[in-house]
């Protein structure tokens, strides 16, 4: 398109680029540049300080022989499955119940959504106090006279990861509910009426007709929850600190302690690359299918 004013044309062409340049540059350096740097470090023998001598796959070998890493991976498996599955199940159930034209829906919705407003650090700290056997739930029950009551998951190295699951569920279920409630509101009321006349029970209507129609919501929720699970760091740090011992370590806390407190930068970098690979394995196929749909849509 020819512009009568050459000066204006120049501004029109360059202004957007000029405005976008700083954030583009910052992203390039601080995101992709540092990913690349971290990738390189994972192939060196860096300890406390970076060392740029190529060392091949030694760090990855060390990582895969590290018992603590495998505990972290196993914990991530438990946490991810229970956290994602649990948050979806609770969130969908709450959304469906709330969709039955409940009185005071606005207030209830806010209450359920409120935990999302807290940071994971606050959630973790609050639950640490509640689950602390000498301070929280167990003490309360003892004070009430139920002296045989024990709930020591927080300090039990076999169960500590499940406390992380509980706190995570408390924080995220309301958010899942909000996403699904929005989806449910988009479903035409007469579809439910039609299914009722067709003789379907309410659970069958939701299971066979409405949830399949909410597939996009299910997918986005899965994506959001999975990356929360994989990145989970602050919740564990605040709640258990990875303990007792390293029984509730997740890859993120493993990476942190290797890279920043134990002077194993190379090993930390290798574990960070493994996490990146995991996230990529989930996100890339999703992005691919979404973008392809856009092109064909």
């Amino acid at each position: 398109m020819a512009t009568p004013n050459a000066h204006y044309g120049f501004a029109e062409r360059w202004l957007p680029r000029l405005v976008l340049a700083p954030s583009f540059f910052l992203t390039l350096v601080f995101l992709y540049g540092f990913i690349a740097w971290n990738g390189y470090l994972s192939f060196t023998e860096s300890r406390l300080l970076p060392n740029y001598e190529w060392a091949g796959l030694v760090q990855y070998q060390a990582l895969f022989e590290n018992e603590r890493w495998w505990v972290a991976v196993r914990n991530l498996g438990i946490f991810a499955v229970l956290f994602i599955g649990g948050a979806m199940a609770i969130g969908i159930t709450l959304a469906i119940l709330l969709d039955q034209k409940v009185r005071g829906e606005g207030a209830i919705r806010t209450i359920y959504l409120y935990p999302m407003a807290l940071s994971f650090v606050v959630t973790g700290t609050a639950w640490k106090w509640m689950l602390n056997p000498g301070l929280g739930l167990e003490k309360l029950m003892h004070d009430w006279g139920f002296t045989s009551f024990t709930f020591d998951w927080l300090v039990n190295s076999d169960m500590s990861i499940y406390t992380v699951v509980i706190a995570g569920l408390w924080q995220s279920s309301g958010f899942v509910m909000a996403l699904f409630l929005a989806g449910l509101r988009g479903v035409d009321d007469s579809i439910i009426k039609a299914a009722q006349i067709d003789g379907a029970s309410l659970p069958r209507i939701y299971w066979k007709i409405i949830l399949p129609a909410l597939r996009p919501v299910v997918f986005s929720t899965l994506m959001i929850l999975s990356h929360i699970a994989i990145k989970s760091f602050d919740l564990v740090m605040a709640l258990t600190g990875g303990g007792p011992g390293f029984s509730s370590d997740l890859p993120a806390t493993f990476m942190y302690s290797m890279a920043f407190t134990r002077g194993q930068t190379g090993l930390g970098a290798a574990s960070a690359m493994m996490m990146l690979a995991t996230v990529a394995a989930i996100v890339v196929p999703y992005l691919y299918s979404e973008l392809r749909k856009d092109q064909h849509g």
Partner: peptide, 18 residues
């Protein structure tokens, strides 16, 4: 509704989308 031996056609058609 299901035992009334009726069938209904809706303004929005109300077809099951999936």
């Amino acid at each position: 509704p299901k035992d009334r031996d009726i069938a209904m056609v809706f303004q929005s058609y109300a077809l099951y989308p999936t």
